[in-house]
Simulated assay, not measured.
Amino acid sequence: MVVYRFLATPRWLGYAALTVAAATVMVLLGLWQLDRYHQRAEINARIEAGTSAAPVPLTGVVGAPSGAAGTVGPPPAEHTEWTRVTVTGRYDSAHEILVRGRTVEGAVGFEVLTPLVLSDGTAVLVDRGWVRPAAAGALTAPEVPAAPSGNVTVAGRLRPAESRGGPPQEVNGRTEVRRITPSAIAPALPYALFDAYVSSDEPAPGFTTVPAQKQNALQNAGYVLQWWLFAAMTLYGFGYLARREVRGPRPANLLDDEADEEEEAAHGASR
């Protein structure tokens, strides 16, 4: 239409390009949040499925290590996280590790990692549960129930290695880490490790179960709607400004007439 010819001017072409670019970025951000929603919803579905699923052998879910002592095996596939697994071996209490700074039920304490040595000489880290810090403070070792002796069968959830973990450190006579990263822990142990760990489903007395942390997928769904609504509002705003440009400025006499009408209405209401 002739009245919209102004849209081909450099100024309005610039406005249009900026509007399209902004709306495109918002749509892409919405798609990214949609992908995050699906990822988190899938994790929640795996957590729910694991509550009733029968455990499967650990080696059927993640590859066993085949290297020398101090090395780790292949990492588990992403879709195997939270799978219930079972593994048999003997606990190596001499190399037990405390994971500091862990919060359960609003309290900060320790998770207890004890290597479980399998019959082939490899091992997997078992998170036996959470314990409170000692009453005397963080400088004192917490009370940790002893691991059972002999061969035991452990059932729990498969957890992938945590990122940015460091090697174990000696702190006041105990071995500690901040994050559970088998590749960083393995060099301190006399056997090869699975590159994952098992979070026990049935902690022994004295331990608190480390709960499965569900993801807030609905938050991402809200962000999807938010970004796409912003994109729609951006495009609508451009169209609104273009329409105002077509209509042009309102005549001064029309503005005066409307002001008179408003004044008369006000006088009439006061009588």
Rank of each mutant, 00 (worst) to 15 (best):
N44S: 11
A69T: 12
L98C: 04
G101H: 04
H95W: 02
A94D: 13
A49L: 07
A41S: 15
V62G: 05
E105R: 09
V104R: 08
Q39W: 15
V61R: 00
E105G: 10
L98W: 01
Q39G: 12
I97D: 08
E48D: 14
R84Y: 03
R46Y: 09
R102F: 02
G67H: 13
N44F: 08
R100S: 11
I43R: 09
L98G: 07
W82A: 00
V72S: 13
Y37T: 07
A64M: 06
V72F: 11
V72C: 05
V99R: 09
P75K: 04
I47R: 03
Y37H: 13
S52C: 03
L58Y: 11
P55C: 08
L98D: 06
A69K: 04
T80M: 08
P57I: 01
G63N: 05
A41T: 04
R46W: 12
R46L: 07
A68K: 14
R100P: 04
Y37R: 10
Q39V: 10
R90T: 15
G63M: 01
S52A: 10
A77D: 15
P74Y: 07
A53Q: 12
Y37E: 14
A53L: 08
I97G: 12
A68T: 15
A54D: 15
H38A: 15
V72G: 12
T80A: 12
A94Q: 09
Y91E: 07
A94I: 00
W82I: 00
P65W: 05
V62R: 00
T80Y: 06
R100W: 03
T51V: 03
V87L: 11
E48P: 00
G60V: 05
I47C: 03
P76L: 12
H95N: 14
G60W: 07
T86P: 05
T59W: 01
T103W: 05
H38R: 15
V56A: 08
T86K: 13
G50V: 00
A45L: 10
T88E: 13
V72K: 08
A45R: 12
R100Q: 12
A53I: 02
V72H: 08
A77Y: 06
A68E: 15
A64I: 01
G63W: 06
P65H: 00
R46K: 05
I43F: 06
G67Q: 14
P75H: 03
R102P: 03
T71V: 12
A68N: 14
L58E: 14
V61M: 07
E81L: 01
Q39A: 15
V99E: 10
E105M: 03
R40P: 00
H95K: 03
R100Y: 02
A54I: 02
G73N: 12
H95T: 05
A77N: 07
